[in-house]
Design a binder for these strands. Structure first.
Lengths: 249, 249
DNA sequence: TAGATTGTTAATCGATTAACAATC
DNA sequence: TAGATTGTTAATCGATTAACAATC
């Protein structure tokens, strides 16, 4: 039996399936086929079954999947059965936004504390009433509240510094809004969110995508390319939700 | 000559290369090799060259790439040569955060207006002094300011309604913070940002990743799986930055 | 020229999908 | 049983990487 190699995209899709299963459960649906669930999640039914097959057998042939059981199973696979405490570093607008984002609580993520590097922000109060703490309290609170997840929302230059402190405190998963790649040990996972890059890919599609043009029209000679003029490259199309997850850097 | 099929991941990486080229330019570096630039962007040098090769020839054999020329070329490919106007729908905390995010202006994105569905918010003023406008002004402003990009930051249930209005107004690229997939015509691109799913994949790695275990330990029998107990599946590892971009839905 | 580095092809690797036997 | 749908293998598709001829 070979070692399983699970695509990162599979994990992302598991989250998506979970979300639709929750909705089905709310609607009182008890059983769902791969066909039906896959169509809601906008994927191929074979892919849904393949994704599940990495982790075991969850369905009943000829019948489908128990909504409730599959929901429990996926939640367990993802590790989102219990509540998880999360801390935030950076008392700026992104942190304010996250604190008020309703989706986290629904999925069992609870924000425990907000920290900041800037002394002037220490003691100020966020919209939800949380008081901003100094970084030297971080390790203590992480231990006390058993926190494994952290958000970095500080200016890029400070990303590495904050990352080091988080790693030292025992944080195991980091969601970073600072686009600079930072170095962390192999056993720590990082996920980056980069708004500008997302807009860039939309811009690419707008600029080039309106009409698909094949490479032959492009000309092979660099000198012939006039930048800023009306070039057109093929539209990028992708169904995959392959967000990047790195376990080392 | 075959039709080019450009991976979505290539476009994402182009954005990353561009960012590092800007930095090199600022530092006065004039020429860079694929080796050097790739190492900064954390990709394989062959991949960098391959990515560029979809669009033409930009280097000099035996020498490398002119930092300035390559920067211009990539900017042109992405379509980020000129400033682009962007509107925001949803006068909530995410919009506040985006308005104050410094990265957008640097990349030439300019926020033109903020709209909201809730009448009570119309006329209120955002942190940066922008006054919240009613949706019935949207189409007019989009035309007037030649806006092609929009951000959706409203509650999930209202995502489709807002999307329809945006499409009607002529918006061509949407960055949505409402996780619900919405329907748009083929010529409109959408990019979703979903914080919860990102945290879920971190949680998966934390729950299962600490020690890699192969599938043989897992047991093939569903009945044997005790949810909530100490299972362990392989860590997801991925270097790819394949964010999802859809041109239709 | 000799050394270096690109551009591109071919090989590899990985992920998606089709098809179907297993089986409820 | 007949019909349905899973779980899984094999085929396809696509993306990454290695290798090297082209060439500055």
């Amino acid at each position: 039996m070979k070692k399983a190699k699970i695509p990162a995209a599979t994990i992302i899709r598991l989250s998506v399936y979970q979300r639709y299963l929750k909705r089905l459960l709310t609607n009182g649906v008890q059983v769902v086929s791969s066909q039906e669930l896959a169509s809601q999640a906008n994927v191929n039914p074979a892919q849904l079954r393949k994704d599940l097959s990495y982790f075991g057998r969850f369905g009943v042939r000829g019948v489908g999947y128990s909504v409730n059981t599959l929901l429990q199973s996926i939640s367990s696979i993802l590790g989102v059965m219990e509540e998880r405490n999360v801390i935030l570093v950076g008392a700026g607008p992104i942190t304010q936004a996250l604190l008020r984002h309703p989706g986290f609580a629904q999925q069992g993520y609870r924000f425990e504390a907000v920290f900041d590097l800037d002394e002037r922000n220490i003691g100020t109060v966020m919209d939800n009433g949380m008081e901003v703490q100094p970084l030297n309290k971080l390790k203590e609170i992480v231990k006390e509240k058993n926190v494994e997840l952290a958000v970095i929302a500080v200016p890029s230059e400070q990303g590495q510094e904050v990352g080091d402190i988080l790693v030292d405190a025992g944080i195991k998963g980091i969601l970073s809004f600072s686009p600079n790649r930072i170095k962390v040990p192999k056993n720590v996972s990082i996920q980056y969110v980069d708004f500008t890059i997302l807009l860039d890919s939309l811009t690419y599609n707008i600029s080039n995508g309106r009409r698909g043009v094949d490479k032959t029209q492009e000309g092979k000679n660099v000198q012939k390319l006039k930048w800023g003029s009306e070039h057109s490259w093929p539209v990028v199309q992708s169904n995959s939700n392959g967000y990047s997850v790195t376990c080392n850097s």
